[in-house]
Amino acid sequence: MYLAKIYVSHKKSILDPQGEAIKSALHRLNYNDVNSITQGKYFITKLDSQSKSDADQTVRSICKDLLVNQNMETYQYELKEV
């Protein structure tokens, strides 16, 4: 079995209103060293794939098909055998 941790966040060029609002709230609480903050999504998925490369393939395609809106989001993932 394989375990994938997938992190989805806004593309750099896309406005992240939630991140902006949270950042200014932190500044009001005097966390002035917070330079930027991005809110994203985190998925954990277990896969019954035959091989690591199969699992890798599946992770990429579920990201593309459903988890990630490629018009505005980007993703990274970690994959390991468990």
Binding site: P17, Q18, A21, I22, A25, R28, L29, Q39
Partner: peptide, 14 residues
């Protein structure tokens, strides 16, 4: 309040 960003009411409490 604050767009309900993060969690509803989470930022307003401060």
């Amino acid at each position: 309040s604050y767009g309900d960003y993060l969690r509803s009411g989470a930022i307003a409490k401060f």
